[in-house]
Amino acid sequence: MGESREHLIRIKPHVVQRALIYDGIRNFFHQNNFLEVDTPVRVPVLIPERYILPVSSNGWFLSTSPEIYMKQFIAAGYGNIFQLCHCFRKGEKGENHQPEFTMLEWYRTNAGYEQIITDTEQLLFFLTKELQVSPAINYCGNKIDLTPPWPRITIREAFVKSAGWDPFVNPDYERFDIDLMEKVVPCFTPNQPTVLLDYPAALASLSRIKPECAQVAERAEIFIGGLEIANIYSELTDATEQRQRFQLELEYLKATGMDNMHMPEEFLKAIAHLPECGGIALGIDRLVMLLCNAKSINDVIAFPN
């Protein structure tokens, strides 16, 4: 107990800053007419994703992401929504990972990933004003200017430039993850956020395929100071295609011994009613790390695991 008291005393400025960031986020979304919603933490079924492992809870699961419920709001006609919530992912523990972490998700109707990227630029710039700090933040020895617009680079350009191969020509997705973290991200400009976009269709997950290019998914990720901050989609609204993608994930999960994962039928029913929309999942703890100049995720969480 002595240790956690010392930790709480040491990180108090970060806990205070986190509270101000939450206020700023709510101000931003209220000003933009987004509705704050709340979804369950303990859930009977999850979106099947091969590399996201759930924590079990008495036959159910702890939520790995609120997306499965957020999209049901959208499909029921709620319009633009946002949520701050806790998510749980088994085995994720490191400098930038905690098995329980905080996620910000928002969804905007009649929008695609480009609009959500713009929202993200606006939100972070707005937060620096709310916190009364310069938009050029200091993080781990680098000055990072959050002023929009942020540079964009496609997956193809980034991989050809930094890893020396084109994932659209050589679809090696195991090497993709490793090279992304070890070769591509370290080459991003240290003084600005980077928007990495246009993923190979096989890595579309829940995003839609570009109407004019079947190879490319309308998916983007935002990296700041080497940290993966957010994942953005033009949301897939085709329930049949979504079911086929989930089937592949479920087969992979079953083959690796995860036989308690099932097809999220309620979610797929909702997808049939989903209007055109874009959405994002943004890691709040990492955002707090950036805005507090904290090197480890444990330094911004009051009771780390």
């Binding site: 994703e49 590399y51 996201i52 994720e92 523990k93 490191g94 400098e95 930038n96 990972h97 195991e174 993709f176 993850d177 490793i178 992304l180 973290m181 890595l203 997950s205 990720e221 993966e228 994942n231 999942a281 890691g283």
Partner: peptide, 8 residues
């Protein structure tokens, strides 16, 4: 521990 959100 290093991990892309959706990756290995």
């Amino acid at each position: 521990f290093v991990k892309p959100g959706k990756g290995r």
